[in-house]
Design a protein around this nucleic acid. Sequence first.
DNA 1: TTGCAAAACATAGAGAATCTATCTAATGTA
DNA 2: TACATTAGATAGATTCTCTATGTTTTGCAA
Lengths: 152, 152
Amino acid sequence: MGNEKQVDAGREQVDTDAFLRSVARLHRLATRNAANLDVPPAQMRLLALVSDLGPARIGDLAEADHSSQPTMTTQVQRAEAHGWLTRTPDPDDARASLIALSPKGGRQLAAARAARTAAIAPLFAELGPRDAATLNRAVAIVDRLLTNPSPD
Amino acid sequence: MGNEKQVDAGREQVDTDAFLRSVARLHRLATRNAANLDVPPAQMRLLALVSDLGPARIGDLAEADHSSQPTMTTQVQRAEAHGWLTRTPDPDDARASLIALSPKGGRQLAAARAARTAAIAPLFAELGPRDAATLNRAVAIVDRLLTNPSPD
DNA sequence: TTGCAAAACATAGAGAATCTATCTAATGTA
DNA sequence: TACATTAGATAGATTCTCTATGTTTTGCAA
């Protein structure tokens, strides 16, 4: 029947379940190997996000991160307590603040990225150039999907 | 300079940091969209794992899942309480038990997979066949990396 | 065969990451 | 001016995970 894995060449679809499972397993492995780092995973995500977005409001960060506003409030408070983020009043709206990466936060992000890469990169070492290229292309595709304003 | 993204054709390497970040963002999105399901993420991972491995000991499950033994003990106890997993004494070792998927667990796994797929698949709907094929290939590569006995 | 280190699992305690529900304060508009 | 809306903050509860430690079997060795 050739239904081995909808490889139908012409209208191939993503095997969503396999995809999600791989993501979950990868995330498990990544957070485990990064457990000894001094920046917890959610804080990493936040620092990288603020680094990309520049000064942004809590609500915007929550939306971009696909998390709830209370969650983002808490994460920002933690990062602020570490001195990684700064908060300035939004000149246009007294209810809001603008969250930005501090110099210390920038250094911490760079250091954590390096440490995290050092911890995980060996896993990829055995991959040939073809497979590595495939993974890089997959990352680009996913990033595009995640960054686009979800159309629903 | 063309160092845009180590695309050097010949000795391309995985951009580990971008890769890990995408995984973290995907995991965030996936767990959020699956939040209303009745099988929490870690339990999903466990049921899928047991479904693959067949009857296995706690320690083997922990190793395959890249998590600690106490964590696996807890997760197994929860799944057991739901009637999703069964525990039988290991005939070869009175200290150990063999964990297996119950019929109810199998049904729950299938249902949860379907629900999860329905929740996430729309994200992939807009992808063309080329991109879908790339993602499927990436999943295969990653699964191979994750399943191989890590050589360290 | 007894004794003890090792192995397999369970328990305790703590911290991170989330969510929903709700509260406060500022905006904007009728 | 009054009231609905919006931006964040707070409270309380889960889930998920870890390290440290305890308990029971095993298995080997004297």
